[in-house]
Amino acid sequence: MDLMSGKVKMTQQTVTTSMNPSEGLDRPIRLTARDVTVHYGAKQALFGISIDIPDRAVTAFIGPSGCGKSTFLRCINRMNDTIEGARVGGTIRLDGQDIYAPDLDVVELRARVGMVFQKPNPFPKSIYDNVAYGPRIHGLARNKADLDEIVISSLRKAGLFEEVKDRLNEPGTGLSGGQQQRLCIARAIAVGPEVILMDEPCSALDPIATAIIEELIDELRENYTIVIVTHSMQQAARVSQRTAFFHLGNLIEQGKTEDIFTNPVNKQTQDYIMGRIG
């Protein structure tokens, strides 16, 4: 228990020390969304979401469950395409390029916008093959040595290498939950994405594993644009520079994390932060 709280505290410290009030606003804008709507069949799930997401910073989406935050996240790399009957309206631009343009290649988009899911989902393959899968399909490595290097550096970046370096050929499903999730992060990093989407990456993990992942997110922020969906306000406060609050399919409020948590403009945001909304 002591160890755990210590870790958490440590994370908070790193976040606090590195947090510059102006950070997250100074950054150039990477992603812009305008009037994004989503329908599942006849049911509308998102109502006109407009938001800007800055480069090399962590943006957190918060809100009660079913508020549409995950749905919006899945719009950013077009994962909603895989759901039957889902329709997306409005525009989302990555570096100015419309990602819903008819001539855009989804495969290429997803190579640029990686994703980490709620439940760790390593493939039933070895640890090495899990990480190597992306580079392999995209043809990123010229030879075996190249691939080895990508795998090892990705595992390192995900902070997993030291723990698994002796058992790279063992199945990834044999790792602990937190390790599996870091493996999934390594797997996403290996493709060399510019944006990483994280859909409640810690919701299936224990507090220690959560703390490690949060630390990792904070490190990754230096090189990647990160969007994280979380149901935990503390987590959003710890890891993000910007926060957007979703409720019932609407984007209620967005801004610097500090402002949102200390000085929310909207009454609903205030209620949520005070724990009055679900």
Binding site: D105, V107, E108, A111, R112, H138, G139, L140, S153, R156, K157, G192, E194, E219, E222, N223, Y224
Partner: peptide, 21 residues
């Protein structure tokens, strides 16, 4: 920790694009 440079990312995109067809 290796830093990602813009040219790195461009090269990578180039390679992804080459395999798409």
């Amino acid at each position: 920790m290796a830093d990602l440079t813009a040219s790195d990312s461009a090269a990578r995109r180039q390679r992804v694009r080459a395999g798409l067809k």
